[in-house]
Design a protein around this nucleic acid. Structure first.
Length: 472
RNA sequence: GGCCCCAUCGACUAGUGGUUAGGUCACCGCCCUUUCAAGGCGGCGGCGGGGGUUCGAGUCCCCCUGGGGUCACCA
């Protein structure tokens, strides 16, 4: 049974890196018919952000990454929030103390700062405090932490399933704090205790954890527990190759959703960051990913998160992957947010169909085609100019349109082409001014399609306004 | 800086000793065309460097270089 997990910290916006790692954990568990769980690592009271947990869980669900156990749905190893498991960590820290794998240290933060400056790091001086004395001071309530007593000299081997064996000289492994003076555990202790207790077999996490893995291996061994398999995934990168960050990239999953990216497309793109299909296909479903997934097809170079390619992929989903009805449905909130409306479902579907090849994110639909959803549409400078140039032509066309009974695309096409030919004009000389007048834009779907969709009344009204010199 | 990881076009990648080094995004051109897109076709562009191993290295080994991560009572 393969059990994987994602252990986000509720310290801010739902992070794209969390989704990235969660995706591979989810896929690996599914691939093996195992379980995937979510555990909230809220052991830093100073960085806790209210509401962050809910937002992270919501973002995972939005992406289609479901979990079998978690803080909101429970499970056999509840609770899934570390702040609710405090006694467990204390108990295990004390066990290490008893068995000589840890020791109490009484330095204040200020003292530690000084020691760090002088020695480059904590020098393990509290190891020299006789255990009886340490216990006595602890009993008296003296503030202190519990640190890992790294065996030195010696070496510790970490087996990363993606990189092979990495050997660390224990000299390089610090006596990290396991239990803070406020009684909360640090990541190292909590993560190992919980992964063991929750039956996690495969730890798939970001590469930034690789160097602290020997600490975890030491802990598993001290407890006498089986060490899980480790897979350290490459870090998502900013365009300048540094670890992806809020300052240089968009890291909030909520931003992507608000911007009109589809969860399917984002999830697909994240999968492309490091994984490739055997046949080179770049568009695939979650099921197809699970089916084809193998660690051999995961590359280790840190992938730069390319918003342009994500946009392309999102556009691909909009115009080729999702059914028209689905795209229309998902576009609704974005149209409404822009204060736009549509007369009927059929109208909306057709409007989306016409615009489909022209927007890459849902948010772009209202931005690029307000004229399909409102009579109060803006004019670009160039459209205004083009319309004014064509005013004489428009004046001639107006009565023809007024007299036109068949308002089908084909009929309008024939009418305007005929008119242009009679006048010795190119179709564009007629179509462009008309397009400008009817849409306020020079970049739109086919003119006849738009006219047919808007209907005779709206077209004539817009044209009348244009001829009267008004633009709104 | 110490330690660790990584290294194919600008970006994402395929490649698992013998390939004209392939695909995708971006970029450029052409086609289509009532505009803009989409789409089709074509193009530009890469194995960081040096040593080995081998009949033969993008592929294996070493060194260098470069990039990244990490060195908290944060995760």
């Amino acid at each position: 049974m393969v059990v994987t997990r994602i252990a986000p910290s509720p310290t801010g916006d739902p992070h794209v890196g969390t989704a990235y790692i969660a995706l591979f954990n989810y896929v690996w568990a599914r691939k093996n018919g195992g379980r995937f769980l979510v555990r909230i690592e809220d052991t830093d009271r100073t960085r806790y952000v209210p509401g962050a947990e809910e937002r992270i869980l919501a973002a995972l669900k939005w992406l289609g990454i479901s979990y079998d156990e978690g803080p909101d749905i429970g499970g056999p190893h509840a609770p899934y929030r570390q702040s609710e498991r405090l006694p467990l960590y204390r108990k295990h820290a004390e066990e290490l103390l008893r068995r000589g794998f840890a020791y109490r240290a009484f330095e204040t933060p200020e003292e530690l700062e000084r020691i760090r400056k002088e020695k480059g790091g904590y020098d393990g001086r509290a190891r020299n405090i006789p255990p009886e004395e340490a216990e006595e001071r602890a009993r008296r309530g003296e503030p202190h932490v519990i640190r890992l007593k790294v065996p030195r000299p010696g070496t510790t081997e970490v087996k990363d399933e993606l990189r092979g064996l990495v050997v660390y000289d224990n000299q390089e492994i610090p006596d990290v704090v396991l239990l803070k003076s406020d009684g909360y555990p640090t990541y190292h202790l909590a993560n190992v205790v919980d992964d063991h207790l929750m039956g996690v077999t495969d730890v798939i996490r970001a590469e930034e954890w690789l160097v602290s893995t020997p600490i975890h291996v030491l802990l598993y061994r001290a407890f006498g527990w089986e060490v899980p398999k480790f897979y350290h995934m490459p870090l998502l990168r900013n365009p300048d190759k540094t670890k992806i960050s809020k300052r240089k990239s968009h890291t909030s999953l909520e931003w992507y959703r608000a911007e009109g990216f589809l969860p399917e497309a984002l999830r697909n793109y994240l999968a492309l960051m490091g994984f490739s299909m055997p046949d080179g296909r770049e568009i695939f479903t979650l099921e197809e990913l699970i089916e084809a997934f193998t660690w051999e097809r995961v590359s280790l170079g840190g992938p730069v998160f390319d918003l342009e390619k994500l946009r392309w992929l999102n556009g691909k989903y909009i115009r080729e992957v999702l059914p028209l009805e689905e795209v229309a449905e998902r576009a609704k909130p974005f149209l409404q947010a822009a204060g736009l409306s549509w007369p009927s479902e059929a109208y909306l579907r057709r409007a989306v169909e016409l615009m489909r090849p022209r927007f890459d994110t849902l948010k772009e639909l209202p931005e690029k085609a307000p004229y399909l959803f409102s009579e109060d549409y803006p004019f670009t400078e160039k459209a205004l100019e083009k319309m004014r140039e064509g005013l004489p032509v428009l004046r001639e066309v107006e009565p023809l349109l007024r007299a036109q009974e068949d308002w089908s695309e084909a009929a309008l096409d024939a009418l305007l082409r005929g008119f242009a030919q009679e006048r010795g004009l190119k179709l564009g000389q007629v179509a462009q001014p008309l397009r400008a007048a009817l849409t306020g834009s020079l970049e739109t779907p086919g003119l006849f399609e738009i006219m047919a969709l808007l209907g005779k009344e709206r077209v004539l009204a817009r044209l009348a306004r244009a001829l009267a010199g008004g633009t709104s």
